[in-house]
Structure formats: structure tokens, C-alpha cells
Design a protein around this nucleic acid. Sequence first.
DNA 1: TATCATGTGTCAACGTTGTTGACCTGAGGT
DNA 2: ACCTCAGGTCAACAACGTTGACACATGATA
Lengths: 193, 193
Amino acid sequence: MRTTTESPAAHAAETPTQTAIAQSARELFLANGYAATSIRDVAAVAKVDPALVMRHFHSKDELFVRVIGFDEHFAPQLDDPVETIGRRLADYLIAPKHAELRRTLTVLVRATDHEAVRVDLEGTMRHLLVDKLKKRLSGPDAAVRAWLVSAQLLGLMQSWDMVGGDGASASERHRVAALYGAAIQSLITPPAE
Amino acid sequence: MRTTTESPAAHAAETPTQTAIAQSARELFLANGYAATSIRDVAAVAKVDPALVMRHFHSKDELFVRVIGFDEHFAPQLDDPVETIGRRLADYLIAPKHAELRRTLTVLVRATDHEAVRVDLEGTMRHLLVDKLKKRLSGPDAAVRAWLVSAQLLGLMQSWDMVGGDGASASERHRVAALYGAAIQSLITPPAE
DNA sequence: TATCATGTGTCAACGTTGTTGACCTGAGGT
DNA sequence: ACCTCAGGTCAACAACGTTGACACATGATA
């Protein structure tokens, strides 16, 4: 999973062909998910031979992981007022303008049946969220608490459609953000023990 | 997904053949996950023709959903002291003795790329957890809060291995249960607003 | 200039997958 | 005796991820 660029699609493919494949792949994976997207589909959209997809990216897993990435979205939410990190994370993830990040995470989470995807998601969550969050936590069990925050976020993405999802009204979003934000915050600044 | 019996495997197949298929399928799905289990594998373990698996269960999705079920595990944890439901849910899910439920939920969550599985998991969570929990909640947004609790639980299962997982020590388990239990509880009895 | 290596692209095929339809039973009902 | 029908078998289908052999161009090396 890539973490340096921020453009949603291009993603550091070098030749135009690689770029075309990567764009088509990301498009189809985001729209239809991992299982419902075949390499032949990707090749067709990119107007390229299926075998060429394999030559550039080495397997479907690898293509997926290279193309479905998310970047430094979490970092700003981990900034200074530690007391509001939970709320800010929830707000960010729930905001309508971040639908693509939400979709990316959803697609990623749903593809975790494949080990390469699982490993990648784990690594990305670690160095984009957990490691950074850990440093901001005081009190005992900082590492575990940071991991549990990431569990909460993945759970929210996993269940997003069940809760009302992208069709929810602004006030519903607001309440979800407030509630889930508080639940996250309870791991970040645990009430007196 | 079945919800009436509690034996881990047999699962209300009527003929011995159906039982054998169901048992083999559950065994393999739990061990290897959805994608890595083929119908031919299941048929081989059950010593049966692959086409027969299709005749009895109608597709791989349906077989999976019928065989990877979990039952009334949550109900007792939703009992009376509302103030401790969060902790009890976390304790229950984390307990070593409930490794099979944990594995079931993990496998299920990881297979949600397939719509039939997603729909089934959603339905099961609703009528095993969300609907029952909702009734015990006072205050506003009971429905949303109940869904968010289920999101937290699924998130925990999704991330279980990242947190340390089944290899964690008793004291680590205890701390995870206390921390995540409190986070859940903050949705069940939200602190003064 | 001739040669060789390398990266890009093509094509046909492999083995496996989920799924289907035609067929064959054997038991029960009329 | 006949029909029905569920249980079970077999061979095949189309689609999938993946591979290997081949063709072509470019640029470096000799």
C-alpha cells in the first residue's frame, strides 16, 4: 500500500501503461470490491492484454494492495488537543467529503480474507495511525489502547452501511460522530481507574 | 445463518450426507477461511461428489452462510446490570474458552466481500445483538448506539490478531477486556452530555 | 556496424474454480 | 406394473489467476 502521494488514482506507476492499469484497477476495485473484479476486467478497461497486468504487478493480491492505498489522512487528527482526538477521528471518517477514504477502507477491510491484504492493512494502520497515536498517549497500555482505537475505526467502516451509511442525514452523522468519537476518546484518555 | 441449535457443527442437516458435508465445510471454512476453501475440498473431506454439495446447498455462499453460524452467545451478556454490559461483552469475546466463536466471527467478517455473507452477518448481528441491546438502552439514539456497539465488536474481531490475539497472556487479555469494555460501555450508558 | 541484453507487449495455454445438465439409481405410492 | 422423486454420479461448461514461449523495440557494448 502506498503512502507517499495523495492523488487518488495515479499512484506512482512509471510508464503510461502501468498508470492506465493502476487507474482502471483502482476504479474497478473501489466500485465492485476485490472478488467481483477480475484481472481480465481490469485489462479490458485499461485496453491492455491480461497477461500484461501480471507482468507489471505480479499477482491480483499485489495489484490490489498497490492500488488500494490510503495516505496520511489520519495524521492531522492526531494533533495536539489530545482530549479531542476521538471526536476528530470520528468526524473525519464520517464527513461526506471523505467518502473515498471510507470506501477505500471498506473495500480493504472486506478483502482481508486474503493474507497479503490483511498484512498490508495491518502495516498501514500501524504506521499511519497506531504508531503515531501511541506516542501521544499517556498512562498505561498505550500500545494496546492505540491498537484498540484502530480496531474501532475498522469496525466502524465494516459496519458503516448497517448504521445508515452514506445515506444518513447531517444530524444523524453528527450524532454518530459524537457517540463514536466519545467511545474512541475513552481509550485515548481513559476516565479515572 | 442458523440460530437455533448450539452444537458447533451438526447444524440441522437432515440426512447423514448433508451432515457430513456441513461438518466438513464448517471445519475447512474455520481452518482456512472462505476463499481458501473450495467446494471440491469440502466434497473430498466429506467423501462425496462435488456436485452433490451443490445439490444440497445451492452455492458456495449459501453453504458458507448455513454452516458458519453463531447462536445465542450474546444474549446472557445483555442481562440485567446494564452498567456492566460493555465489560461482560468484552470479557466474553476475549475469553480463551470462546475461541471458536471468535474464529467464527473472524472468518465471517473476512468474507464480507461477498454480499450474501454481508447480508447474513448483518441480519444475525441485528437479531442476536442489536435488537436485544436496543431495548435495554435508555436515552436518545438507542438504535444507533446499539449498532455502534456491534461495530465495535466486529472491529475487535477484525483486529484481534493485531492486538496480540489468541497468544496473549492472561493479564493482557484482562487489560484489553477492561479497556475495550469501557469503550463499549461508553455507548451503552453515555456519560452526562 | 553487429550483437546482446532488457523491458514492453502478445498469444495460447495450463490447472483450478463454481456451477450445470444429463443420467442413473432405488424406494414408496398408486 | 408403473410413475415419481429424492439421492447420487459423471462429464462438461465458462470464467478465473497465472505461466511460458514468442516477437519487437531500444540502448549499451564490442
